[in-house]
Design a protein around this nucleic acid. Structure first.
Lengths: 188, 188
DNA sequence: GATAAATCTTAATCATGATTAAGTGATCCT
DNA sequence: AGGATCACTTAATCATGATTAAGATTTATC
């Protein structure tokens, strides 16, 4: 029984110990080595992953062959490719461990059974999706309104600990900038 | 009883006629005149709106004083400001009717009562949020990968009818471009 | 129908940040 | 330890698309 996940659940829904156990019974604890993949292009994503240790990057390969990072996944966050998971279509995405990592796997099949057994889980993921969507919209607003320099500085300010954990060139990719440009920002 | 909304509900969940009626009873049918606002900056958003006629723009005023459009809302779509609605905080956004319009208003209070009376509505909005989030992610990918010209052409191709309905300068704002640049694209 | 307001166009100049290229340190691997 | 890959830096050049400014055209209003 994962204490962080329990706390996380209870942030959003009222849930008894028994119900938490039912939820956690649907999860498989797994480990993965640095640089290995949770998902690769062409595979259909069939699960959501709750990260308990390490961090992941979620990226695709664009038309010029560059790896474009769309998200980082860190401890106590869910990571998955919703486009592939929800529509059961082959993914265009990669999800890769950036450190040796641990996570809880919630397969879509197990989740659908849970929705029936425990309808409040439906509520939980409804709320999670609302939060996730709001964050996505916030990011779009930043992309519209901020200069490259401001994007970088806003990220560093909001995620100071994480910024040191990630190679600069991956941060650049996530922000839609080049490593050279980040270098230029920092030198001033 | 709105036939479009019923069809829309049944795209996502199994729901009886009686239950549809219960859902529709929570909705208020309203009209609004062109250029009037569903939401203004500083007000807290307290409802979701299902558009049945006309279209809306959802925008904020950026630091330079420009209106930045984040979304258009068209017939048979929901529109609301999730950031304000979910966190019950004053909105930074405006939602404005671009034509004389009709919509169904679902207040957050009514929705929360519905979640309890009719838990499958929780499921419905969980699914809607997943779809909405996937669209938001797709948009971020476009913003990363496409040139201004490609952004414009992709939008026109995906929304040919709508592109004629919207002034060019608003489309420019939505795409993060200037009207002058759109003009340049079209002249070639 | 006349006037005003809103929208679109053209063209010159400018700025942000990409691209290219080279070089410098780190870190990993045997 | 030595070589190789990986990560970061610097600097010159380039391109996309913004800004500015003016004019043209369309639409709304009385």
């Amino acid at each position: 029984m994962n204490a962080n996940l329990t706390r996380y659940l209870r942030n959003y829904i009222d849930i008894s110990d028994d119900e938490v156990e039912l939820f956690q019974a649907a999860l498989k604890t797994k480990t993965i080595q640095k640089k290995d993949y949770l998902l690769k292009e062409g595979k259909t994503c069939t699960a959501r992953y709750f990260i308990t240790k390490g961090y992941f990057r979620h990226f695709y390969i664009d038309t010029k062959g560059n790896e474009q990072i769309v998200h980082f996944g860190i401890e106590n966050w869910w990571i998955t490719d919703y486009a592939s998971l929800v529509n059961t279509t082959p993914s265009k995405m990669y999800i890769q461990a950036m450190e040796d990592a641990e996570y809880l796997e919630l397969s879509q099949d197990a989740l659908e059974a849970l929705y029936i057994k425990l309808p409040k889980i439906e509520r939980f993921f409804r709320i999670i999706m609302e939060k996730t969507y709001i964050a996505s919209q916030q990011r779009i607003e930043y992309m519209f309104s901020l200069s490259g320099k401001q994007l970088y500085e806003t990220f560093i300010l909001a995620n100071p600990e994480f910024a040191n954990r990630v190679p600069q060139y991956m941060l650049a990719s996530y922000l839609g900038l080049t490593p050279e440009f980040i270098s230029k920002i920092k030198s001033k």
